[in-house]
Design a binder for these strands. Sequence first.
DNA 1: GATCAAACGTGAAAAAAATCTCATTAGGGG
DNA 2: CCCCTAATGAGATTTTTTTCACGTTTGATC
Lengths: 201, 201
Amino acid sequence: MRYYRFLSESGAKKPPQTITSAQIAAALDIDPTQVRKDFSAIGLLGIGRVGFEVCEVCRAIRVALGFDQRHEAVLIGTGHLGAALLAYSGFARYGLHIVAAFDMDQRLVGSKVAGCTVKSMRSLKPFIRKHGIRLALLTTPVEASQKLADRLVSVGVKAIWNFTPTRITVPPEVLVRDEHISLGLSVIAYHLTHEVDSPSS
Amino acid sequence: MRYYRFLSESGAKKPPQTITSAQIAAALDIDPTQVRKDFSAIGLLGIGRVGFEVCEVCRAIRVALGFDQRHEAVLIGTGHLGAALLAYSGFARYGLHIVAAFDMDQRLVGSKVAGCTVKSMRSLKPFIRKHGIRLALLTTPVEASQKLADRLVSVGVKAIWNFTPTRITVPPEVLVRDEHISLGLSVIAYHLTHEVDSPSS
DNA sequence: GATCAAACGTGAAAAAAATCTCATTAGGGG
DNA sequence: CCCCTAATGAGATTTTTTTCACGTTTGATC
Ligand SMILES: NC(=O)c1ccc[n+]([C@@H]2O[C@H](COP(=O)([O-])OP(=O)(O)OC[C@H]3O[C@@H](n4cnc5c(N)ncnc54)[C@H](O)[C@@H]3O)[C@@H](O)[C@H]2O)c1
Ligand SMILES: NC(=O)c1ccc[n+]([C@@H]2O[C@H](COP(=O)([O-])OP(=O)(O)OC[C@H]3O[C@@H](n4cnc5c(N)ncnc54)[C@H](O)[C@@H]3O)[C@@H](O)[C@H]2O)c1
């Protein structure tokens, strides 16, 4: 949820230690009731007149979403996007740790990308087995996605974070999260083309 | 919309030229009625017994979403993520063309990233003015986001594609599209932590 | 050409989500 | 110590989204 980001960064600045649902709602421009509903859904109760305790809420969200646990992941396809993700340090705050990177390209194997040595695809299976990896990030060309997904699933991966613009099919117990950049692009393209028509509202 | 991606790639393989709403619905696992509703919303009418003409639908979506027009954009922050985006060739299919890249780092200025020469931040304003740029991609550190956004807006940018994990505030006529990677991460973390609890359903 | 079935469009119904209202509770001020 | 304001939690209400159901159209079949 977006609550977590807002609270953890606003809490870091000045510690009022307590925040009201109306404040959160105003900052994220949503309805205050919505905030309270969501919070109570994960068993959070505010206290009248003061609101919610920031730390408490953060912790509850961390627990509810699983950010408090360590999730180890592998990255397949150490290309441009893969390198960017490897270099990104913001994942740790959500409990995600990319512990290995793999690539088919033999020229890349052995090289260091963002402090992570790229491994050969041959070592993928034993690595996942050995470390009990349950999450994989897919940043390969689209052609390879489905094949790699099948391979990952067969080795026991339980979730795939798919940055490839293709829909991949997996058994129902495996989660695929598609990071579709084109969806955002749609919104932008629409705005840019129709912006002149309706400047107001 | 996700329709476009599916149709354009499925249409490329084998040209049945015509597709039924049920087929689309099955592939994207949504309700067939939803497909028809969405299509009719952009003035698309299928014909009984045959369904929809693939090319026709693609074209209508392109027009409706503005993919048929050329959108020129600048990229601010030629770091890891910025380089990946510059290298990505998939934007052209949606009408997006990144025509220039900017960075504060003087060591980067002048160098070529993915065939695009990195420009100095000083030249940002004149460039946008001169070329009438209306879209900017933000891939800078979070600290700089708001300031850059203000600057971009003041020069006439109408939409900002924000890859930064911060909420930025802009005048209402300007569109900000946040590409929040952490949202996807939430879903994954949740699945991984609760997967063992409910293996079925 | 008459019939049949597949797929469409549309309006109603159901479900889900967002919003509003209000009684309740807890601090702050007199 | 009592009242008053501010903020909560929960139920009611409204709005939006999704789904269902049915009449109509259109190509295929006989
Ligand atoms: N770069 C972006 O900004 C961006 C944006 C959106 C989507 N994407 C998608 O992300 C994917 C990767 O993009 P990229 O720019 O990093 O491409 P890239 O070509 O830079 O990287 C792809 C990497 O995958 C490796 N690879 C190819 N086949 C493989 C296989 N079978 N097994 C293992 N590794 C393999 C290649 O050696 C290469 O290193 C693409 O599908 C692209 O559509 C990228
Ligand atoms: N790398 C990822 O996969 C990833 C994922 C999600 C979000 N993000 C976000 O994207 C942003 C960039 O990530 P990155 O990995 O590319 O970082 P990076 O440090 O590699 O790149 C940032 C670039 O911005 C430039 N820059 C800094 N301040 C600037 C300014 N005021 N004006 C112009 N340029 C400036 C820097 O010189 C640098 O080249 C960060 O906010 C990060 O949180 C990155």
